[in-house]
Structure formats: structure tokens, C-alpha cells
Design a protein around this nucleic acid. Sequence first.
DNA 1: TCTGGGGTCCTAGGACCC
DNA 2: TCTGGGGTCCTAGGACCC
Length: 341
Amino acid sequence: MAAWVLHVDLDQFIAAVEVLRRPELAGRPVVVGGSGDPTRRAVVATASYEAREFGVHSGLPLRLAARRCPDAVFLPADAPAYDAASAEVMAALREFDVVVEVLGWDEAFLGATTDDPEALAADLARAVLDRTRLHLSVGIGDNKLRAKLATGFAKPAGVYRLTRDNWFEVMGGRPTEALWGIGRRTAAKLADLGLHTVRELAAADERVLARRFGPTMGPWYRTLGLGAGGTEVTASPYVARSRSRETTFQEDLTEPAEIGAAVATLARRVARDVAAEGRPAARVAVKVRFAPFFTHTRSRTLPAPTSDPDELERAAGEVLALFELTRPVRLLGVRAEFPAP
DNA sequence: TCTGGGGTCCTAGGACCC
DNA sequence: TCTGGGGTCCTAGGACCC
Ligand SMILES: Nc1ccn([C@H]2C[C@H](O)[C@@H](COP(=O)(O)OP(=O)(O)OP(=O)(O)O)O2)c(=O)n1
Ligand SMILES: [Mg+2]
Ligand SMILES: [Mg+2]
């Protein structure tokens, strides 16, 4: 029997959860995000496949989504409901004789030993569907990177296998941005070096990449082009590095007293999350986004790690005081960081 | 019609220390 | 006039992902 990495990812996850609660929405364009009011400052968290037909996707401003798809149903994001759905899905996956490494709300790597990974994938999908009524797609790979990318070709509700045998055939001609870890900015820098496709990146001179992107990222980008990567799937429990809360205001804040009060509120919410972690925070950061859209952060290592709400609130206030609050403020955020392990 | 919220990891310069 | 070499911590910002 052979070792395989499977990657499972739910289809239109939070939209699907919403449709389960409101079956009359099935087949309609559904857009989830913000408070569900498309006139407010917010973006699309996800759109149902019906809504995506209209060019609506994650990250698109809600107002624009409403413009592109006026008939869509706009719903507020309900994080606790998605947490619960996610937990059910992960529990269903753990029933199998596999190692489950949860990646986020709606996806996981599975380490499996089998001679028929497609059959396993079908069994997983069936089990999750039976238990949660949610559809998922499965990527099968000879490492995590290929399994992860395979899932994209599996959607919707399918299975796809991507290995060293078909890597260049499938990925070679695609833009570097198709790789997991290369986004718009890096793809543009690679293009400046004449590297447009996955195949070109794979054949690139490592020294050139190292000079442009540093000794860690440069060579790593080339390995992405090759489809190379780790195979180890671990079930070790997730340990948070930080907890944060942030809010974008519908109208920019200008009053220092209002700004201070908002930071204090955020700090106390963060403090609750820190307490829930059961570990003290070692550092506090405050984020301020000024109008029209300039984002800055200031941070401070605490004299000693703490979980105390009063101390965290005070620290956040002191970090806020490092800013010159000249322009109107559209977003405030507070983050607590835990000590490095 | 501007541009969410919750995260992770990397870089780079200066401080500080040996 | 030329002025080591690391290592590590601190901070700010950038990039990416779901
Ligand atoms: N910019 C983003 C991307 C995603 N999400 C949330 C909502 C998604 O439902 C969930 C999972 O992200 P996916 O990228 O897996 O997207 P979906 O599951 O919605 O769709 P797909 O079927 O393409 O996986 O994470 C978000 O809030 N903001
Ligand atoms: Mg998904
Ligand atoms: Mg996902």
C-alpha cells in the first residue's frame, strides 16, 4: 500500500451552511459577508456558485456585488454557525483511518495509506455529506502542495489526482499565481524577471531568485514551480500565535475620545480570547487604518506576559498613544501575540 | 459604489551583546 | 582613515491565505 496526501475542501462553505438553514435559497445566488447589508462597508466572504456566475467572489466589496448581481440574497456572516459546521466535518473525517491536519474553517490535509485513494476520497465525501449535508471536493497528491492544488481541479464535488507524473502537463503552462503561496504581488515581480509560467519558474536560476527574494523565499518559489513540497501530515493540535479583533467603522472616527474608547473595547474582547487560550500574551499591537486607506501598526512587548484584561487594555491604550491621530480613522484593531514557543 | 476579519510567516534595520 | 563578526531581540511592514 502507498502513502498519499489528500486535501479536502468544502464547496462554497459558508454559503452552503446558510442554504442548509434556508432551503428556499437553494439554486439562488447567495452572497455572505459583513452584516448582510450591501450598502455598508464590507466585502464578500463567499458567494454561492450561482452568484459567482455574475463575477461575485470573496473579497469583492458588497456594494459592487449588489451591482453585479442585484437579485442575490445577501446574508450576514455568522461565524459561530460556521465553527460548528466545521467541527462536524472534521469529526466525520476523523472517523476514518487517516491522520487529519486541519487547515482552516473548511479544509484539511489527510495522510492516508491506501492503494485506492479515489475510493477513499469518495467514501470521505459520502460520510461528510451524510453527516452534515455539505459537499466537498478532494485533491489527491504525492505531497501537500499537489494535493492542495488538485482540489481546485476537483471542484465542485469531485476528485482529482495531481502527482509528479502529471504536474507539468497540468500546471506547467499556468501563471505562477496559480501556485499556493504566490499571489498577485510576487507573480508581478516574477514577471519582471521574465518568469510567467510555472514551467519557467521551475527552470529559473535559483541564485537570481535568491537575490530578488532572499535566501529563503527565492529558492522556495522554485520548488513551488517544481510542485515539490512536504508530505508530512500531523494531527498535533493547533496552537495560536496571536489573537486579534478589528473593526471598520461605517463612518470614520475623528474624536480622540471615541478612538480611545473603541480601542479599549477591542482590547477587552482580545483579552477574553487570550483568557480562552489559557496562555498569557507577551506583546500587544494596535492597527490604525486612516482615511482614505493607509494602514499602520504599532506594537510593544509587555514587561511581562499577561492575560489580565485591565493590563491588556492599558497596554493597547499606550500603544495607541504612539500614533499621531491626524487623519480620520476608518479601522482600529488590537492584536495580542503569545510568546514564541 | 472603494477596499472585512481572522490569521500565518518572512524581511530588514537598529539595538545590544559577546 | 578605517572602523570584525556574529547572534538575538525588537519593531514595522509586506505578502499571502481562508
Ligand atoms: N477572502 C476570504 C476567503 C474565504 N473566506 C471564508 C468563507 C469561505 O466560505 C471559507 C472557505 O474559503 P474557500 O476559499 O474554501 O472558499 P469556499 O469554500 O467558499 O468556496 P470553494 O468551493 O471555492 O472552496 O472561508 C473568507 O471569509 N474570506
Ligand atoms: Mg472551500
Ligand atoms: Mg478552503
